[in-house]
Amino acid sequence: MRKILQETFLEMIRRAATDLPPDVEGAIRRASKAEERGSTAAGALGILLENVAMARAESRPMCQDTGTNTWWIHHPVDVTAGTVKAAVLWATRRAVRLGYLRPNAVDSVTGENSGDNTGVGQPVIHLEQRARAGMAVDVLLKGGGCENVSGQAALPDFSIGAGRDLDGVRKAVLKIVDFAQGRGCAPGVIGVCVGGDRVTGYELAKQQLLRPLTDRSPDRVLARLERTLLKESNELEIGPMGFGGKTTILAVKAVKAHRLPASFFVTVSYSCWSLRRAHVRIARGKPTFSDTSFLLKAGGR
């Protein structure tokens, strides 16, 4: 089992880093047709598509910032958490040597780079044991530029007239998108969590980035919020790379979590256009790769 896990996780990293999922590429292609021909925005999107094709053909990371590697792993009782974690660390180190990942773990006090992309809290591994046999695994590679422009608001926010209701949520999200400008490598995808505490808010918002861009929340209210936020984000006309243009955001994925009476957090996990993820299911020792997550049902977990 150890060998299968190691090789499967390494292949997941390679795919995520070098091969943009078809739903994301399709959204960029549609965006490039929507921009004015000959504009800087259209030119930038054209280069992105060219880059995606080159990265895929040459099996090279499409972005040099291979980001924080975040794993969601559901494992059966007969595969221990220790075995799974060890395989993730092996695959991470191996991926650095092969040039699929950049050594991205820096000691925050000494400034020293660990050299192999592992360190305290890196990579991030969410483990959940399940009663069934077989495993399901998601990995997300999310770069620093878009992590830096992600944000969390505590409602009410009087500066923008945002109360503790869905209209307040809408205003708070738009404020974060406007503040980001092009710095998160627009056009971005945003995961939004309504409620939760400060930690689960970020965790659930980030997890929404695993959803196919073409789906919508099964919750009718959240589905409407997703549509409204997509339309209004694009009315900001920040455009690809912040050059100005019609496409600022490619998709909005919203989820809700219960909150304390005293707290009303709204959390946005901003992903750059380069939304890199890979999904696998391992049954009877055989991995099956997919363009969509085996773990995440549309609209939440």
Binding site: I47, N51, M54, P61, G115, M241, C272
Partner: peptide, 25 residues
């Protein structure tokens, strides 16, 4: 263009040197 890292690497002909590699990573 942000994220176009393979495309942009294609314009690099050579790497004539590096400074502070051990210290900075």
């Amino acid at each position: 263009v942000g994220g176009a890292a393979v495309y942009l690497a294609g314009f690099v002909r050579s790497v004539p040197g590096v400074y502070m590699l051990d210290e900075l990573g």
